[in-house]
């Protein structure tokens, strides 16, 4: 990363605009923050633009990044809403990124996470941004890294990232968040489902939401059994997000995990893991865009040539 602002990625007009926005957002201007997010969303590589002084601020930032993931309808948004209320009670400022899926066919998206967070709409200390996944298959959006930086520059104490409704293998949040909260709800299958690899492995805090429903205790027991197979003990919180039950405990558990991360120095590992994932995402996108420029006929010719070569050497040209 050269500290040359005239990087080919950023036109001079764009960079002047972005400079202005960054200046304003650091003074607490939410409109500037919102517009800067759009810049990054439309061009995730703008991240190379944040240098010098800004990098220093980012390095010192203590914003805690909480990832909330789980299957569709498990209660991620409602739980986030309830958790934010507690953070606000503690005087913390919160930036939320809520990702919902983009259509693979039209690219359109219906972003409906906000609807569960209405009570924070007129609170200056809470900023909510909805995003479409825009082709990302890991449960996030490629510009999420850039938005984290902007939230840190703005100075939020907590950054909450809500993934798309995740099934079993949308695990990218593990590379992005400091603390991952996995939200489960009753009737989501037997203990074998809980033993499968993937999303069950990435949680730092488990939440059994809708704990007032039948099957919640059974789910908790199954989860305890499965978690006992491993040496690392992870907390299980029983919650009813709509009533607020269990949310205080969720807050405590996240704080406990946060303290643990700082005491053990693991917070640095998580930060470098995030940076690595970010670099990979940028590289992947670069490669994708290069591949898109390659003529598929050329590729076929090349593939056939290689196959011929292999066949010849193996089977003596039969």
């Amino acid at each position: 990363m050269e500290s040359d602002k005239s990087d080919r990625l950023v036109s001079s007009q764009k960079s002047a605009q972005l400079d202005g926005l960054l200046e304003r957002l650091r003074k607490g201007d939410q409109i500037a923050l919102a517009k800067a997010i759009s810049f990054f969303e439309n061009d995730p590589e703008l991240i190379f633009y944040l240098q010098g002084e800004l990098q220093e601020i980012l390095a010192q930032s203590k914003s805690h990044i909480v990832g909330v993931t789980g299957s569709p309808g498990a209660g991620k948004s409602t739980l986030t809403d309830a958790y934010v209320s507690i953070l606000r009670r503690e005087g913390k400022r919160v930036g939320i990124i809520a990702v919902d899926p983009s259509s693979p066919f039209t690219g359109g998206a219906l972003l409906g996470d906000r609807i569960r967070m209405k009570r924070h709409f007129s609170d200056d200390g809470v900023f909510i941004r909805s995003m479409g996944s825009r082709g990302n298959v890991g449960g996030l959006n490629d510009s999420v890294f850039g938005v984290i930086m902007l939230y840190k520059l703005y100075g939020f104490d907590y950054i909450i990232i809500e993934t798309v409704g995740a099934g079993q293998s949308e695990v990218d949040i593990a590379y992005v968040a400091d603390t991952v909260v996995l939200v489960l709800s009753p009737s989501s299958g037997d203990e074998i489902q809980l033993m499968k690899a993937g999303i069950m492995e990435i949680a730092d805090v488990f939440v059994v939401n809708k704990a007032d429903m039948d099957g919640a205790e059974l789910l908790k027991m199954n989860l305890e059994t499965v978690l006992n197979f491993s040496e690392i003990q992870k907390p299980i919180v029983m919650s009813v997000a709509t009533s607020g039950r269990g949310i205080d405990e969720l807050y405590q558990q996240i704080e406990k995990h946060k303290t643990h991360l700082y005491e053990t120095g693991e917070i640095c590992q998580r930060a470098s893991r995030r940076m690595k994932k970010h670099a990979e995402t940028i590289l992947d996108n670069r490669i994708q865009s290069i591949l898109q420029c390659v003529d598929s006929n050329d590729v076929n010719v090349m593939v056939n040539a290689v196959l011929d070569e292999i066949c010849k050497s193996r089977f003596g040209g039969l």
Partner: peptide
């Protein structure tokens, strides 16, 4: 309809105040 036309639609639901 707007979603199917390829737009990102943020739906905020019922009973919103002008401020919200």
């Amino acid at each position: 309809g707007l979603r199917d036309a390829g737009m990102e639609v943020i739906y905020t639901g019922l009973r919103q105040t002008p401020e919200e």
